[in-house]
Simulated scan of single mutants.
Amino acid sequence: MKKSFAMIYTIFFILFISFVLIFIVKIASYSPRIIKDLALYTQGKILLHDTKELSKYFLYQAFLEDKECLNEYNFEYNSIKIRIDYAYPLGECKNYKLVANYANVKSIVAVNISVLLNSDKAVNEEVFLQKSFFIYPKVD
């Protein structure tokens, strides 16, 4: 009887030690994942900030090319997909021409920026960031 209790305690002890070791390995492998995600998130935030300035530049370039408005602009930088969507609350953009619903349609432009990092990896490794803001161009 004493040998069977000793065997049962030994089995439970081995199971407990194996559980603790698996738990330690999982925790130890989680730290590099956090650091990798933080690096990707920081890179995405930097790209969001830079793309905010680029969105203004793309509107200016469209104006120089005699286009009154833009609907969207997509580009890829270092396998990172970036999309800039433009919306005109006081009007509508059709074929690079503004259809005015109100008198001063060019006074405000709403911009939405989307950045997708790691799109070629698994779904759990993708990092998707968005930012929305308004541009108030000078109307002469």
Rank of each mutant, 00 (worst) to 15 (best):
L48G: 02
Y77C: 08
N78W: 04
S55W: 02
K26F: 04
I22H: 13
L64P: 04
A62T: 01
F13E: 10
K26E: 05
S79A: 15
V99W: 00
L54P: 03
A100K: 15
L38S: 12
I46H: 07
K52A: 11
G44K: 00
L64K: 12
G44N: 03
L38H: 12
K67I: 00
D50M: 09
K36V: 08
F16M: 13
N101T: 14
L47A: 01
K36M: 08
D37T: 02
K67S: 08
Y88Q: 05
I35G: 02
F58L: 06
A39N: 10
K106M: 10
A28P: 04
E68C: 06
I17T: 14
K26V: 04
L54S: 06
I34R: 07
G91Q: 01
C69V: 00
L59C: 00
I34S: 05
Y88D: 07
F58N: 06
F58M: 04
Y77V: 12
F63S: 14
V99I: 15
Y60T: 14
A28Y: 11
D66Q: 08
L98C: 06
A87F: 11
A103I: 14
S29M: 09
T42K: 05
A39Y: 15
Y88I: 06
F12N: 13
L47Q: 03
D85K: 09
E65A: 12
C93M: 03
I14D: 04
G91K: 01
G91I: 04
E72M: 01
I24H: 11
Y88F: 09
P32A: 05
L64M: 09
A62Y: 03
L98N: 02
Y102M: 14
Y102E: 13
N101W: 14
